[in-house]
Amino acid sequence: MKAVCLLSGGMDSSTLAYVARDMGYHIIALHLRYGQPTEDAEYDCARKIAASLDAEEFLTVNLDYLRSIGGSSLTDDALTIGDHTGVEEGLPNTYVPFRNANLIAIATSLAEARGAEAVFIGVQASDYAGYPDCRPQFIDAFQQVIDTGTADATQIKLMAPFVTMSKTEILKQGFALGVPYGDTWSCYRSGAPACGTCDSCHYRLAAFREAGIEDPIPYEVRE
């Protein structure tokens, strides 16, 4: 069996790829760059994770058109990536409009071309203020798109096993599978060290604290 794994190089997607391998899939790693501030660090980590999994293929696709669209602090230099405040007032500006639909569409194209049976994506319904393209309803709807828009003989399952899990639960599963978290990157702002104060750093550090293990990557600030 083969699976296309969307591999950003972050904590969740790296754990996801290890889960897919544990399920018996041979990994086709798909890494997507879209001009985010830490894209080089993410790319380096994604390559290391793919190598640790003996991935059959590591494909990088450039989605820099998302910078032309803008609408997110990850793709628009005029917007600022803020510190985590703990106050949820609508979507955070790190939400990239409809990003996951773009990612899954490309992953589906790759899966159909390679004869893969599954596409894995590490979304969580609890991500930050509830990104709309991380909800179970979105995954269910996109499965229908895949079923409708691929060849009749094609059967591709969209797998989102973390969608109802917490980051701490994901991390504990990763520990059991031996995920090398020192080779992952989650910070929105900085390639080295991680800032420690953006939403992504905050939730990653909180998960490690709750798991009772120190995060192995360097931080400018450890909240």
Rank of each mutant, 00 (worst) to 15 (best):
S8R: 06
V221E: 12
A153C: 13
V4D: 05
P216S: 08
S68L: 13
L53Q: 03
D44H: 12
Q124F: 11
T94K: 00
R222F: 10
P97Y: 09
V87W: 10
R114P: 04
Y34F: 15
P193G: 10
L91M: 14
A211N: 13
S8Q: 07
Q155F: 13
M165Q: 14
G10S: 06
S186A: 09
G130L: 10
D140M: 08
D152Q: 09
L205N: 14
Q36V: 08
S13M: 06
D22C: 01
D76C: 02
A151P: 01
A141D: 08
I213W: 12
T168Q: 13
T150N: 06
D133H: 08
H202A: 15
V19P: 10
M159H: 03
N93E: 11
P132I: 11
V96E: 11
T184R: 01
K172N: 07
S8V: 04
T148L: 11
G174C: 03
D64E: 14
A111S: 03
S52I: 03
Q155S: 15
A125G: 15
M159W: 04
R135P: 12
D140W: 13
D40W: 09
S109D: 06
M165C: 11
D76L: 11
T15N: 02
R135T: 12
E88R: 06
Y95G: 05
E42H: 02
E56P: 00
G82K: 13
D22Q: 07
D44T: 04
T148Q: 12
T75K: 06
D199M: 07
S126A: 15
L53T: 01
R21N: 12
R47D: 02
K2V: 01
T168C: 11
T168W: 11
E210T: 14
G191Y: 06
V87M: 09
A141Q: 05
A129L: 01
G82Y: 09
Q143I: 09
V123I: 15
Q36Y: 09
G212T: 11
A206D: 15
Y219N: 09
S166G: 14
D140I: 13
T75H: 08
L110N: 03
G70H: 02
D183P: 00
P92G: 08
T197C: 08
P136F: 08
A107T: 01
A101I: 07
E223V: 07
E39M: 05
Y25L: 03
